[in-house]
Design a protein around this nucleic acid. Sequence first.
DNA 1: CCACTTTCTTAATCTAGTTCAAGTCATTCA
DNA 2: TGAATGACTTGAACTAGATTAAGAAAGTGG
Lengths: 206, 206
Amino acid sequence: MILAVFLLFLSTRMDTFQLFTSISQHISLDKTDEAYLQSILLPMKVKQNEFIETAGEVTRYFIHVTDGCLMTYYTDQEANDHVVQFSTAGWWTGDLQSFTSESPSIYSTKALTNSGVLLLPINQMNTLLDRYPKFEKFFRIIFQNSLITHQQRIIQNLSDPAEKRYQNFIEKYPTLEQFVPQKHIASYLGITPEFLSKIRRKLMDK
Amino acid sequence: MILAVFLLFLSTRMDTFQLFTSISQHISLDKTDEAYLQSILLPMKVKQNEFIETAGEVTRYFIHVTDGCLMTYYTDQEANDHVVQFSTAGWWTGDLQSFTSESPSIYSTKALTNSGVLLLPINQMNTLLDRYPKFEKFFRIIFQNSLITHQQRIIQNLSDPAEKRYQNFIEKYPTLEQFVPQKHIASYLGITPEFLSKIRRKLMDK
DNA sequence: CCACTTTCTTAATCTAGTTCAAGTCATTCA
DNA sequence: TGAATGACTTGAACTAGATTAAGAAAGTGG
C-alpha cells in the first residue's frame, strides 16, 4: 500500500517534471508553487483518436502535452477539417475564445498518437492567476510567443506558394511527418491531400 | 509660460485618458500607476504615410494608437506588401518577434491617416513589467485576445473563399473601407487589388 | 490650373490548386 | 482468410484567383 502511494506520487511527479522545468525558464518556481500546480493539474493518458475537447461544447481545460501529439482543428459547414495546430511535448493548446467567453468551442482537440497530457481546468487556471500572479507573466510569455508564431503563419500563407509552405513545415517540424497522416498536414498547409501528394512527388524527383 | 505648461500637461493627459480607461477594464490602476505610465509613454502625432517602425531595424516601441489608423505590413522578396494588421484607436501594435529577440524587424508600420500614438519604448516596457507586475496581467489579456483574433483569421483564410473573407472584413471593420486604400484591404485578405475590384463589382450588382 | 502620380477598373490570358474518379497499398477485424 | 476501411497516388477536367496590360478616375503638388 505504501509502495502504491509512493509509485503514484512518483508517476505524477514525472508527468509534471518537464512542465516545471519549462516554466522555470520564464519564472522562478518555489516548492509551494510547484505543490499548488501539482494539486490542480490532472495528468491523463489519451489513446490515439480519442478526443480531449469537442466542438460544440464549452472548453473545460487548458491543455499541456507531456508526450505524444495532439491536433486541434475546425470543421466548417462543408464538413472539411482545418488544422489549427499540432501540439507535441511541451506545447500548450486550448480554445482561448471559448475559454474567455464561456461560449461553445468551434474547435476539437484529439490525440494523433497515444499521448500524455496535463489538464488545467479553466476555473483552476483563473484562481491560479489570481493567487499566484507570477503565472500572469508565464502565460503572458506563452501567449506572446504563440502570437509571433501565428503572425508568421499568416504571413506565410499570404506570401508563399504551397510548395514553399510545405518545405518550411518539414523544416520547422521535422519529426511530425513521420506519424501525422498527410491529409492533416495538407489541411494545416491549406491545400488538398491530392495536391500535397503531387508536391511531394515533385520534390522527390528533384 | 504657466499657461503653456498647463496646456502641455492637459494635452498629454488627454492622450493617455483613453488608454487608462481601457486598461482599467482589465486591471485596477491607482494614481501612482498612472503617473508612472504617463512618465514613460511618448505621445506623438504622425502624418499620413509617415513611418513609425521600418523593416530591417530593431523595433524600438510597442505602439498604442489613440487616433487615426496605422498599418503594419511585411514586404516579401518580390517586393509585394502583405498587411499584417490595421490598427485603429485603442489598438496596440508592434513586432513582438523583433521585440523579444532584439533582431531586425521584418515588418514596417506606417500611418494610413494623420494619427496619434503613444509609444512605449521596449526597455521601458520591460521595466514596467518588472516594477508593476499588474501589467503582466494586462498584457497577458491583450495577447490572449490578439491570439484569438489571429487564430480566427488563419481559419478563415484556410476555409473561406475571397468573397466571403471580404464580406467578413467589412462586417468586422465597417469604418476602415472608407479611408483605407482598397489595395491594402486586398493585401490583408490575401488577394490582388484586381480581384478585389471584381468581387466588389459582383456584390454591387447583386 | 495643368502635369504627374496613384488608385481603381475592365478584360484577356494564364496557372496554382481543386474536384472528381479510379486504382494501389496497408491495416483491421470478423 | 478475405472483405472492408482508411491513407496515399495519379490523371483529367475544371475554377478561383493571378498576371498583364490598358484605360478611367481621382488625388497631389508645383
